[in-house]
């Protein structure tokens, strides 16, 4: 078993889910309508729960316990894609990110359901239903908002254009890419990205939105190597503010 490679894979997934779940939770109680507030909050809880499960796998591999790991690291120790840490802005960007991220997340877990690393395969099978709902939700909202008013259409297009290069950054390759593929732990970021483009394209077309022309695609990498935007540091400090006062104590 290639432990460093597995750890790196687990860390980036756990951090993506934690940070994006945290961002989603910022809408709780402040959403655009009560019913959607509830739905969006459930998805935030799912993400944070999945993140916790991944941190528990890391703990089994000798990393610190889930709470310490998630709540006491500094921003420059996080492995999430920069895409996850960007502020929510309005419901346009939040929805677009939810759509782009959740398709990737669902496909990643689908691939991992057959991973030779059984604990992760087991988790992937367990969260299948949650992810299916997230993607149903994302598809419906993406298409309906893009087909709505002139204003909403324009907003969704702007949000998609702004999100795109960050979203491509989710597929930043690891130095262990070859080992992961060879050991049948994970099929790799390149394969995931191809599947992802295939999955999202019909919905983007249905929504009447346009992706930036391919020659302008310029993935924002760095997150997987602990390089982050100015938005992550305050997020991480805020998230750990209470926990860090007494990190050894129960809360």
């Amino acid at each position: 078993m290639n432990t460093p490679a597995i750890k790196e894979l687990l860390y980036k997934m756990a951090d993506d889910l934690l940070i994006i779940g945290h961002r989603h939770s910022e809408w709780t109680g402040l959403g655009p309508i009560l019913e959607e507030d509830i739905s969006f909050s459930s998805m935030a809880q799912d993400k944070i729960g999945q993140s916790q499960a991944l941190f528990q796998l890391l703990h089994q591999l000798g990393e610190p316990d889930a709470d310490t790991n998630a709540f006491t690291r500094n921003a420059n120790q996080f492995y999430n894609a920069q895409f996850a840490e960007l502020p929510n802005e309005e419901y346009d960007f939040s929805t677009v990110r939810h759509f782009l991220y959740d398709h990737a997340d669902q496909l990643r877990f689908e691939m991992l359901a057959h991973s030779s690393y059984e604990p992760l395969a087991k988790l992937a099978r367990k969260v299948k239903g949650e992810l299916k709902y997230h993607v149903f939700h994302a598809n419906t909202w993406m298409v309906k908002l893009a087909q709505g008013t002139e204003e909403s259409k324009a907003r969704m297009q702007t949000a998609l254009s702004n999100a795109w290069n960050y979203a491509l950054g989710m597929f930043e390759e690891s130095k262990f890419e070859k080992e992961l593929i060879a050991a049948k732990i994970f099929e790799g970021e390149a394969a995931l990205k191809t599947k992802w483009i295939q999955a999202i394209t019909p919905f983007i077309e249905k929504a009447g939105l346009k992706l930036p022309p391919e020659k302008e695609w310029n993935p924002v990498y760095g997150g997987r190597k602990n390089f982050h935007t100015e938005h992550l540091d305050p997020l991480v400090k805020e998230m750990g503010e209470v926990f860090r006062v007494e990190p050894a104590s129960q809360w």
Binding site: L34, E35, S39, Y133, H137, T140, K144
Partner: peptide
């Protein structure tokens, strides 16, 4: 549930 269309009504009903 309050909803704008049946698809969303189902999404909302599932969570509420």
């Amino acid at each position: 549930v309050h909803a704008a269309n049946p698809d969303m009504a189902l999404l909302f009903a599932k969570e509420q």
